[in-house]
């Protein structure tokens, strides 16, 4: 754009728009004592073989099946949160009618089962604070036989495998 009607000179399109960028680049680049090459190398054929390596890793990725169903954990957490909320809003002058056992975990669990939150165990694991969970928390919890049976029922396709001797 030429603001002065009598000025016959023109600039290339977009010249002033990109001027600042070019100037800033020029200010930081020339006569710099900073070497341009970072000097990092990679092994021979690393990039050529990378896809094959990755493919192998993807194929061998073990599928993680949570021993403690994450939805049940969420249900328990939700029930505790519900108790706290109810306790905070509860009128203490009225007779106490609600107890922990009155809150039906099965209803809360059913809610989580029936509503798809589109969260994979992987995604949930990412947001759970790892620091608050120790391996010992899991190891010290007694395994309920019902949980074990449910787990085996859901995840073992061939029950004969369970009868194979360890040494075989």
């Amino acid at each position: 754009m030429n603001k002065n009607k009598n000025n016959p000179f023109k600039t290339p399109e977009g010249y002033f728009d990109s001027f600042e960028d070019k100037l800033m680049d020029k200010l930081s680049k020339p006569e710099s004592v900073i070497p341009k090459d970072s000097a990092f190398e990679v092994p021979d054929n690393y990039f050529e073989s990378f896809h094959d390596t990755l493919k192998g890793k993807l194929e061998n990725e073990p599928k993680v099946i949570p021993l403690f169903p994450i939805k049940k954990i969420i249900a328990v957490a939700a029930s505790i949160a519900a108790i706290v909320l109810i306790a905070l809003n509860f009128n203490w002058n009225t007779p106490s009618e609600l107890t922990f056992s009155d809150l039906a975990n099965t209803d809360i669990e059913a809610y989580f089962e029936n509503n798809d939150f589109e969260l994979s165990p992987y995604e949930i694991a990412e947001v759970l604070p790892v620091t608050n969970t120790e391996y010992s928390d899991i190891l010290n919890s007694p395994l309920e036989s019902d949980h074990l049976l449910d787990y085996l029922n859901e995840n073992v396709s061939d029950f004969d495998e369970l009868n194979i001797d360890y040494n075989e």
Partner: peptide, 13 residues
């Protein structure tokens, strides 16, 4: 072995 930098490049890092 996969860093072939001279003294300046090491200083830069």
């Amino acid at each position: 072995v996969y860093f072939e930098g001279d003294e300046i490049q090491l200083q830069l890092q």
